[in-house]
């Protein structure tokens, strides 16, 4: 069954189609949630809420644009809501004040390594890095989404990259030593 048919059946609340959609997309969407939320349980909760929203709001999807993108957006929003609820998000954002030079990070970082590095980042850095570098949001969109200024978003990204670079160096040194 192709995606269009699955969507059509999901719109009429067909349980089999819902299960098919979940089977096809949950692994990818769970990896999205895991990048935003350190805790595995939180990521699972976000995924549950996101899929519940996907299935209940699927009628509002008008087949304009990518369905995968629409689902991904719901997961990201759910993760951001979880972060806001925990209230550690704004505290981490306040750390941003020093804007240095744009740091380059190797993009060839393996997923597991990236996940480990991201887990060690403050929530604000991690969120903005995810939104900008992986999801492809613009600074203006990030600022609107998080209720911060565009400059804060930019500075957070630079600081996040700096921290990632440091963490990768540390990891490499540790590997060489061992």
């Amino acid at each position: 069954m192709n995606l269009e048919n699955i969507i059509l059946l999901c719109k009429s609340q067909d349980a089999r189609a819902q299960k098919m959609l979940y089977t096809d997309y949950s692994p990818m969407l769970f990896s999205v949630a895991k990048r935003y939320l350190k805790n595995e349980e939180d990521a699972e909760d976000a995924l549950i809420e996101a899929f519940f929203k996907i299935f209940t709001k699927i009628k509002s999807f008008q087949n304009q644009g990518s369905f995968e993108g629409w689902m991904r957006k719901i997961v990201v929003n759910e993760c951001l809501m979880k972060l806001r609820k925990k209230r550690n998000f704004t505290l981490a954002l306040e750390e941003a004040y020093d804007i240095g030079e744009q740091e380059m990070i190797t993009p060839n970082l393996a997923y597991q390594d990236l996940l480990t590095v991201l887990k060690n980042l403050p929530t604000g850095y991690r969120t903005i890095f995810n939104l900008y570098e992986i999801e492809g949001y613009k600074h203006r969109e990030i600022a609107e989404q998080l209720g911060i200024s565009i400059n804060t978003s930019k500075s957070q990204l630079i600081l996040a990259k700096k921290r990632i670079r440091e963490l990768i160096k540390k990891k490499q040194l540790a590997e060489r030593a061992s």
Binding site: F30, K34, I105, P107, Y111, E133, G136
Partner: peptide, 15 residues
């Protein structure tokens, strides 16, 4: 800008 995007955007993990 988004050098990570192609590599990590579609990564899948077991649920």
């Amino acid at each position: 800008m988004t050098e990570f995007k192609p590599l990590h955007q579609d990564h899948q993990v077991e649920v």
